[in-house]
């Protein structure tokens, strides 16, 4: 799980062009949107693409997005659960 979290940090920094952010700056439990990393609606779409491109995962229900993309921890948990199901 720790490896997946660290990998996600690097992928998010790269995919979202977060040039001023280092992996160690990101608390995996902090919210990705709003007061946390401050991502916007376009970033949300990029995260959906990232899940599909890197992990072959699609969101069946868009309404699940808010929970899945709450933080890096929740993204990692979603990826783990899909891979083991």
């Amino acid at each position: 799980m720790e490896d997946l979290i660290e990998k996600l940090k690097l992928q998010i920094i790269d995919q979202l062009n977060l040039a001023e952010v280092k992996p160690e700056d990101i608390d995996p439990g902090q919210p990705l949107f709003g007061d946390g990393l401050g991502l916007d609606s376009i970033d949300a779409l990029e995260l959906i693409v990232l899940l599909e491109k890197e992990y072959g995962l699609k969101l069946d229900k868009p309404s699940d997005g808010k929970q899945i993309f709450h933080s890096i921890n929740s993204m990692a948990e979603f990826i783990r659960s899909q891979k083991t199901s």
Partner: peptide
């Protein structure tokens, strides 16, 4: 086929 939203905009 993975269009990038952040490029498309």
């Amino acid at each position: 086929y993975f269009p990038s939203p952040s490029i498309f905009v």
